[in-house]
């Protein structure tokens, strides 16, 4: 199965729609609830990252019987230093975004913790690509 979602930068009121949609699908497929929760966390954080930092992005989700693969590509400022971005507590979010309770520098570490594979690449000034995989059996 393949699904695609467009994500608008700055549109916080829609953040979480794609994650919640995928979560419903996974539940219908009777995937282990604990694994569904891990995927939902990773998806939500990834979605919020695009909303908070990029101009726009696209989320492509591929599902088979064994795993879910998620590819997020955005157009935006990109990430200068990925190693630093992965550190818990580091964030470049604006004050406005922080006031909403985002930008705590926990999003990427949350993604790492809840996925089996995570690959983050970026071209500063162009955009960021995030690939994540979660296996359905542990």
């Amino acid at each position: 199965m393949h699904f695609e979602y467009e994500i608008e930068g700055g549109d916080f009121s829609s953040a979480g729609k794609a994650s919640s949609d995928i979560k419903k699908i996974l539940k219908q497929l009777n995937i282990d609830p604990q694994i569904v929760r891990r995927i939902a966390i990773a998806l939500y954080e990834a979605e919020v990252n695009v909303v908070a930092h990029a101009c726009k992005g696209i989320m492509k989700v591929d599902l088979d019987a064994h795993k879910i693969k998620i590819l997020l590509e955005d157009e935006g400022p990109g990430i200068e230093n990925i190693e630093r971005a992965m550190q818990e507590g580091f964030s470049t979010a604006s004050d406005e975004v922080r006031q909403m309770g985002f930008g705590a520098g926990m999003g990427l570490p949350n993604i790492k913790r809840n996925t089996d594979e995570m690959r983050l690449t970026s071209v500063p000034g162009r955009g960021t690509t995030l690939e994540m995989t979660v296996n359905f059996s542990q």
Binding site: I41, G101, A104
Partner: peptide
């Protein structure tokens, strides 16, 4: 902090917050 809740809260918990936006 929303990511803190995403990362650390467990299902079934009550969440106490002063945030009032839709997220």
């Amino acid at each position: 902090l929303l990511s803190d809740v995403m990362g650390k809260a467990r299902n079934g918990m009550i969440w106490v917050t002063s945030q009032v936006h839709k997220n």
